[in-house]
Amino acid sequence: MHIILTLLLLTLPLLTTTALLLRARWILSPSRTKPIRHGRRNPKEPTHLLIVLGSGGHTAEMLSMLTRAVNEPSERARLNLRDYSHRTWVVSEGDSISAQRAKEFEDAASGFGQDSIMAGKVKRATDMGPGSYEVVTVPRARKIHQSVYSAPVSCAQTFWACWSLLVKQLEQGRDYPDLILVNGPATATVLVFASIALRFFNVKGCVTRGKMRTIYVESWARVKKMSLSGTMLSRVVDRCLVQWPQLDAKRNGTGKAKYVGMLV
């Protein structure tokens, strides 16, 4: 009798760990269920893109990338902001420059799409207009020169703020972001981990409904070695894009790092 009980007690943690690991593997797998979409701008299927502006060079690179994308000369490669009926811009507390630049980008870019392929034709019912956007603030995960020891506390605050910000989307009559686009630094890393935690527990069905796919773009300024954010995120995001060939996972890069050329 005792032997059976001991065995059970021994196998229980093992089973739990295995279950948790399998769960983590599933929610982290890029091949997990994706929603089926009927057209790009379907009023019945709103789309939501979340972008983190990490301040300083991160903001500059993100906006450079997006500005290039909405201005691509080839129609096939040109990003239309209207494909995303709602955009959430996440900036760090006190970073009024990033907030301002998000607004400027929205003002300039959301008007772009309307007269491209639709020019001269009757406005189709599927055209939902420029959609909406919101700039939200979260506390900074790690200030520049902040000591390593106080970082866990500020990271926990940021984590909580990111978690609430994502869940709040549902209360505001929207849904989770479909796509999360980040390029560092710590604050963005924390937001990605918050989205992973939500998927792990499938809060409000986020993983079953294929929400919150994640893309990390390594800084263009990283040539030979991944950043700390990149090293951590390269294993857990759905796509990890690097802009120098040396940083591909086949060479010096980590995780899912894939060289795709320059994006900025």
Partner: peptide, 24 residues
């Protein structure tokens, strides 16, 4: 700048489209 053909074939858009599941 940017250098001609310096990015992915369908740009950043192509990658976002893949992840979103936009099929057209």
């Amino acid at each position: 700048w940017p250098p001609v053909n310096s990015g992915p074939e369908r740009g950043l858009k192509g990658i976002l489209d893949d992840e979103m599941g936009f099929l057209d």
